[in-house]
Design a protein around this nucleic acid. Structure first.
Length: 734
DNA sequence: GGGCCCGCAGGG
DNA sequence: CCCTGCGGGCCC
């Protein structure tokens, strides 16, 4: 019967046989799967017009007629599924609504758990990958325009409409379903929400139709809290349990708090996926834990001098206007937060371009990508998720201005336009955004303080690659990834410490000696490109072939005698190199610069936090760093006050090294805890020792020579805010 | 559904 | 150290 060469029209109505758009009069729709076919390209032509209404496409008729048919028919259909749908559709005991629900359950690939009553919340949010979704084409067409659904919304009676068609329908005052005339609930009429399950079904159908391999869209993962190793929690001092007054749980991504743009797989050690468009979290705290939007109350995450990284659309400001691919965002401020309030719907003064509002303006001027999350709490937007907080990708702020808001006071306004490489959660497209023309914004007529981008944007579409990329390097982070202090709280000090840790890691990773595995002192790079501490390399041949000769003039010659000296790492001959090994200055400078950064961080940390155990711990733990800092100083020649080897005053670091070696051989080991590297100059060790002595011996904190900030005693709660701090909020008259 | 409360985190 | 904030839970 059916010819296997018969092919339907694709999602755009283009016949897959003749590759032309099938005219309306020549389109046949299958009564079972409602797939459109180009009638003139069918191998078997229809005899009468009446046949058209009962026509069943070759795929469906094949399935029906031949039990084994499924194996030979095109992959876009699933015979099993067809049978199931037929069973559903022909079941007289089911209402339309129940049928719709059953179909939906098939869509979500979990018919077993389908219960006849009440929607299954998990299924709603957990649309996986399904095969044969194309077969459900009848449910993928709008019941008003009959075209493929665009931004589908679903009525409780189980009928789907394009968002625009639906809005037009109810805009005409109609309150019954355009398909079955069942009453549309007023909430649905007022606040239609995109049905993401349908969106996914369309995408999947498109995927299989266009034979895209690996058709698992990177979207719509609902990340359940129970899948996470850590959650937000309440401290003892919090009077209320639960999320209301909770501390943030662990941050799962490794981006710094001021990271711009999408969060990619390399910043996701947990899953190696990155934060995916469509990913949804229970609340703002969880959203924060995945780095999409770090501030858990504020709508804007950013710094006025630097730019804004992300915003939340949560319905906090009534002036917001959401059109999905673009939206108008309202700045923060202008509200009286006295009386211990965190938010206040009532505006009582004008907003200004300062603080977060200025941060957004900086992002606008530079064309930075701004991550956008939408919360279910935004009731007026069709694009808001049904529940939770969802990551919707990056947008650029094309313009910003001020205007009088709904409440009469001036508000800062921002035009956000989407520019993400992944499709938005509401679109049936399988691709991300393309550059689009700016929408016409009526309120611009009344705008003041307009700012538009003058220079080329940092984040822009690359025609060659067909995707959005950083055209200019993203702003360099000024913040370390989030970190926690010993109480598990995210603090500035903890971040500083964390940054130190990461610098230490980098030092160890990039600049460690292949022999002692510690950060190199006087780095040598062999011709075979392996790095060693000068002393380590020399030591490795010590008994073998060197004549060590020391002069007070600061030179030392090392001569190979007879043996061939091989690189300890790759066994290449390095004899010639070792005759006159030169310290790799560039490497040394790099190490020094990292060391001095760490030192600065340490100083700052001490300034702010006082001498506490953490400081000691840091130095103890980072003995490398501690030593290196001192070595760095020595290298630049500040070795005059050594009390260990005064006779060597004029000798270079290498000479110091020799002395150190001698000490070691003689078993003199005056340095205990800070003696990790035998080749370290004595003076360096002496200095480090001095620091460590303070810490090791438990020298009274007050005796520390540095100026200390006494505002917080050791052991006191890290959070310096008193439990009743709220009462101190401005203007609290309670 | 609105009001109130308050711990937290970040900016400056 | 103080100010700010498009949260979230509970009570009415």
């Amino acid at each position: 019967m059916a010819n296997v060469s018969d092919l339907p029209c694709d999602a755009d109505g283009t016949c897959m046989v003749c590759k032309k758009k099938a005219p309306d009069g020549e389109t046949l729709t299958c009564k079972t799967c409602v797939t459109p076919w180009h009638s003139t390209c069918l191998s078997v032509q229809l005899k009468t017009l009446a046949d058209a209404s009962r026509w069943e496409c070759p795929d469906c008729s094949l399935t029906a007629d031949q039990p084994g048919g499924a194996t030979v028919k095109p992959s876009i259909t699933g015979g099993d599924l067809v049978e199931k749908i037929r069973a559903i559709e022909s079941d007289p005991s089911l209402t339309d609504r129940e049928k719709a629900k059953r179909r939906q359950e098939l869509l979500s690939g979990d018919a077993k758990s389908a219960s006849p009553d009440g929607p299954n919340q998990e299924q709603k949010s957990n649309v996986g990958t399904n095969h044969g979704l194309a077969i459900l084409g009848d449910k993928l067409n709008c019941s008003i325009c009959m075209q493929l659904l665009d931004r589908p919304v679903s009525t409780p009676c189980g009928h789907n409409f394009c968002l625009k068609c639906f809005q037009k329908w109810v805009g005409q005052g109609k309150r019954t379903c355009a398909f079955c005339r069942e009453v549309i609930p007023s909430k649905m009429a007022r606040e239609p929400r995109i049905n993401s399950a349908i969106v996914m079904a369309i995408r999947n159908a498109k995927m299989s139709q266009s034979n895209v391999s690996g058709g698992v869209p990177r979207v719509n993962h609902f990340v359940h809290n129970q899948d996470r190793p850590d959650k937000a929690y309440t401290t003892e001092r919090a009077k209320r349990s639960g999320k209301a007054n909770a501390c943030s749980g662990k941050i799962f991504v490794t981006v710094p708090l001021d990271h711009f743009g999408p969060i990619t797989a390399e910043h996701d050690p947990e899953r190696n996926l990155g934060v995916l468009v469509g990913e949804t979290w229970e609340d703002r705290m969880e959203c924060r834990q995945w780095g999409a939007h770090f501030t858990h109350v504020a709508g804007i995450a950013g710094q006025s001098e630097y730019g804004a990284q992300s915003v939340a659309l949560s319905g906090g400001y009534e002036d917001d206007e959401d059109h999905g691919e673009w939206f108008l965002y309202t700045g923060s401020g202008g509200r009286d937060l006295s009386g211990n309030k965190r938010t206040n719907k009532k505006q009582s003064f004008d907003q200004k371009f300062d603080k977060s509002n200025e941060a957004l303006r900086v992002s606008c001027k530079n064309g930075y990508p701004v991550r956008v999350v939408r919360s279910h709490k935004e009731k007026r937007s069709s694009y808001a998720p049904q529940e939770g907080v969802r990551y919707d990708g990056v947008y650029r702020i094309e313009k910003c201005w001020r205007k009088a808001g709904i409440q009469g006071f001036k508000v800062c306004r921002y035009l956000f336009v989407r520019c993400d490489n992944d499709p938005a959660p509401w679109t049936s497209d399988n691709h991300g955004d393309r550059p689009r023309e700016l929408p016409i914004v009526e309120e611009l007529k009344h705008a003041t303080d307009m700012t538009e981008r003058k220079n080329s944007p940092a984040w822009d579409f690359d025609e060659g690659q067909g995707r959005w990329i950083w055209k200019k390097p993203p702003p360099e982070s000024r913040r370390a990834p989030d970190a926690y202090d010993e109480e598990g709280k995210s603090t500035k000090r903890a971040r500083r410490q964390s940054r130190n840790e990461s610098m230490k890691e980098r030092l160890l990773k990039d600049f460690s000696c292949l022999i002692c595995r510690k950060v190199m002192v006087l780095p040598l790079t062999t011709p075979c490109a392996h790095n060693f501490c000068k002393a380590c390399l020399e030591n490795s041949f010590a008994g073998q072939s060197f004549i060590k000769q020391r002069t007070c003039g600061g030179t030392r010659t090392l001569r190979a005698q007879k043996n061939v000296m091989k690189c300890p790492s790759c066994t290449n001959d390095v004899s010639d190199f070792l005759k006159n090994p030169q310290v790799n200055r560039e490497l040394m400078n790099l190490i020094e610069s990292l060391q001095s950064q760490m030192k600065e961080e340490n100083m700052e940390s001490e300034e702010i936090d006082g001498a506490n155990d953490e400081d000691a711990e840091l130095c103890d733990e980072t003995d490398d760093a501690c030593i290196e800092v001192d070595m760095g100083e020595e290298i630049v020649g500040t070795n005059g006050k050594s009390n260990v080897g005064a006779e060597n005053e004029n000798c270079d670091a290498s000479a110091e090294i020799l002395k150190e070696e001698k000490d070691e051989k003689e078993g003199s080991k005056p340095l205990t805890n800070t003696d990790p590297q035998p080749h370290i100059g004595k003076e360096a060790l002496g200095k480090c020792d001095a620091v460590s002595d303070h810490q090791e011996a438990g020298v009274a904190r007050g005796e520390m020579p540095k100026r200390r900030n006494k505002r917080r005693g050791a052991g006191e709660e890290t959070c310096s805010l008193a439990p009743n701090r709220g009462k101190k909020r401005r203007g609290n008259k309670a």
